[in-house]
Design a protein around this nucleic acid. Structure first.
Lengths: 334, 334
DNA sequence: TTGAAAGCGCTACCAA
DNA sequence: TTGGTAGCGCTTTCAA
C-alpha cells in the first residue's frame, strides 16, 4: 500500500501539501493540485483509515455501530429493513457500519471504548432495558430505536404507536363503527418493548373519545389461535363490526379464519392492520393499513447519530407517524 | 479516555512496560504487573484500536468485512443465519464485523484499501461473478461463500449440492424407487449462483449410476405453480414414486398440493428436501431432508479467513456436506 | 501558496 | 526485569 509520503515524493511536494490537497482544507495552486492528484491516481493511494482517525482533531473513525437482535424470535424481515436503511444512510454520511449482536453486551463497551466506532444505533430497546445505564455512560452518541422509560441524554427514534391506533379508531369511527376490537401479540418481547401498551392506550383513548365500545384480545400466530381470538372478541362484544390488528404474524391466520367463517372484508367486518410494510401483502382479502415505517426509522436514527457525532443537535426523542392507507379493508358500518 | 501514558504515570512505570503487561509479550515481575493492572482498572483504560493497528507489526485491525445481499429477493432467513454465524465466530477470533451491502461495490475497495478491515467474507457469489477480479486484486484475504468458475487465489466455502443430490437419490434408490423426480427453482439468481446446476448434475449422475428413471421440473413458489409442476413431472414419468425438492419456498405448496390430490407421504410418494434448516419445519406432512448447513458455512468461512489473516493456510475450496435425515418422508417403493 | 515538524496512541526494537 | 525511543500513517499547527 502506498502511503502519503510515497505520494508526496512522487509528486515532488511535501507531505502536508498532499494532505491538504486531499482534504481541501487549504487553497492549493492548480498545478500542484494536479500533480498531487496524478500521483494519487498513479499509485492508487488510499489514506489509511486508522492513521487518519488517530491524527485528526475530531478523532472520528467514520464507523458507526449497529446493535441488532439476531436471536431466533426476532423478526428477520424487520431487522433486515432496518439494516438496509442504516447502512444506506450511513454511506450517505461517509460512514461504514460495524455490526454488533444483542447478545454481545460487552461489545457496546468494547467498540466504543477502543474508539472503533463514533457512535451507536441500538435496535429493539425494551421499556426497562438493562443496557440503558451502560449506553448512557459510554460517552459516545447513541441513538435508540424504541422508547425506554428513561431516556436521559439518549436519543430515541420510534413509531408513534398510540397515534397509529388513534388514527385507526378515528377512521373506523368516522365510518360509523361503534364497536371495535383490538388484536395484539401475546409474545412477551413485544410487551417488553412497550409499543403494544402504547398502541393499546391510544386505541382505548380514541375509542373513549369517540364513544366506541371495545374488545381486546391477544393472539398467537397460528390458525387455531386466530379462531380462538375471534371467538374471544365476539364473546366480549357480539356486535363487533371492525378490528384493529397489531400483530403481523397473526394477520394472515385471522384473515383466513374470517374467510372460513364466511365473514367478508369489508362488507361484514372492517379491518385495519398496524405493521411493517408487506405484512398485509399477499392476503387473500385486502385490509387497510397503518404502516410502521421501518426504513424511515433507520434512516432518521442514522441522521440523528451523524448530527450528534458532528457535535450538532442534542439528545431528543422522535416519534414518527404514518398515514392510514385505505385499500378496501374498511366500509361504512351497516 | 485514558491513554497508555496515563496508565504508565499512574502505575509509576514506563509506557512500554504497560504495553508489555497488556500484550504478555514480555515477562513482567508480579508486583509490576499488579500495579499496572490496578492502574488499568482504576482508569478504565482501553487501548485505542486504531493506534494499536497502526503501530503493530501485523497491522491488523481486528475487523473483518462481511458482504451481504440485502436486496428484496434475497432469502432473509438464510442471510440472517450467515450473519449470526459469522459474527459469533468472528468474536471467538477477537474480531468484529463490518457490514457491507452487495450494492456497495466500491465498498470492497474502500474498506480494504483504507485498512478498515483485515479481510472479507463475501456471500452470494455467482458462477461468473463480476466482482471476482476485483476481489482477487484486493491484496487482502477473501473468503467467498459460493463456488465461482474461477477461484484463483480466493478461498471458497460452499455446500456440496451435487453430493447432496447423490445422497438423496441413493437413499431413494436403496428403498427401491426406480423413478424419481427433481423439483428445482426457476429463479435466475439461483441459477447464476450455480448450485442448482451442480445439484442437478449430481442428481442425474447418481440416477444414471443406480439405473433410476428421472423427471425434472422447475417450480415457482405458488400453489398454482406447484400443481402445474407436479402435473409436468407426471407427464414426463407417470410412474414417479419419489421426489427430490430443491426449492425451499415451493416446498410447502408442493406438499399441500399433494395433500389435496390425496397423495400421501410417504405411502404414495417419498419426498426428500434439500434446503436450509427450518424449510421443512411446520409442514403438514414430514419429509426427509438434506440440510444446507448455513451456519456451519459461515463459521468455516470465518475460520478460513482468520487463518489467512494470520498468514496461515492458503487459498482453498471447501465443500461441506451433510447427512440425509429421515423423518418419515420416505418409504420403500411399493 | 507551500514546507517542516509536532503529535495522535500505540508497538516493538534497542539498551540497560 | 525494565526504560527509552523510533516509528506506524496521517492531520494540523507554526513558519516561511
Amino acid at each position: 500500500m502506498a502511503t502519503i509520503s510515497d505520494v508526496a515524493r512522487s509528486a515532488g511536494v511535501s507531505l502536508s501539501t498532499v494532505s491538504y490537497v486531499l482534504s481541501g482544507k487549504r487553497s492549493i495552486s492548480e498545478p500542484t493540485r494536479t500533480r498531487v492528484l496524478d500521483a494519487v491516481a498513479l499509485l492508487g493511494y488510499r489514506p489509511n483509515a486508522g492513521a487518519r482517525a488517530l491524527a485528526s482533531a475530531s478523532n472520528r473513525t467514520g464507523v458507526i455501530g449497529l446493535v441488532v437482535p439476531l436471536h431466533e424470535d426476532a423478526d428477520v424481515n424487520v431487522v433486515m429493513q432496518f439494516v438496509r436503511a442504516v447502512t444506506t444512510t450511513a454511506r450517505r454520511h461517509e460512514a461504514d457500519v460495524l455490526l454488533l449482536t444483542q447478545e454481545d453486551s460487552a461489545g457496546l463497551e468494547r467498540v466504543t471504548a477502543t474508539a472503533l466506532v463514533d457512535g451507536l444505533v441500538v435496535l429493539d430497546i425494551a421499556v426497562d432495558d438493562p443496557r440503558i445505564p451502560l449506553l448512557a455512560g459510554l460517552g459516545r452518541p447513541v441513538v435508540l430505536i424504541g422508547l425506554p422509560r428513561e431516556t436521559q441524554g439518549l436519543s430515541c427514534v420510534d413509531f408513534d404507536f398510540a397515534l397509529a391506533a388513534r388514527t385507526a379508531v378515528d377512521h373506523l369511527a368516522r365510518l360509523g363503527h361503534t364497536s371495535i376490537g383490538l388484536v395484539s401479540s401475546s409474545t412477551s418481547s413485544v410487551h417488553q418493548a412497550g409499543y403494544a401498551d402504547r398502541l393499546q392506550a391510544g386505541f382505548l383513548e380514541q375509542a373513549a373519545a369517540a364513544g366506541v365500545r371495545v374488545a381486546t384480545q391477544s393472539c398467537d400466530p397460528t390458525a387455531a389461535a386466530a379462531r380462538t381470538c375471534l371467538a374471544g372478541l365476539r364473546a366480549q362484544r357480539p356486535d363487533l363490526t371492525a378490528l384493529v390488528v397489531h400483530h403481523e404474524a397473526a394477520l394472515p391466520h385471522l384473515v383466513s379464519a374470517l374467510g372460513e367463517q364466511g365473514v367478508r372484508i369489508p362488507r361484514d367486518l372492517s379491518l385495519v392492520s398496524v405493521g411493517a410494510a408487506g405484512a398485509a401483502a399477499g392476503l387473500p382479502q385486502p385490509v387497510d393499513v397503518v404502516e410502521v415505517p421501518v426504513g424511515e426509522m433507520g434512516r432518521v436514527a442514522v441522521e440523528m447519530l451523524s448530527a450528534r457525532i458532528s457535535g450538532a443537535g442534542t439528545a431528543e426523542v422522535r416519534l414518527l407517524s404514518s398515514p392510514l392507507v385505505t385499500q378496501g379493508g374498511s366500509a361504512p358500518a351497516s
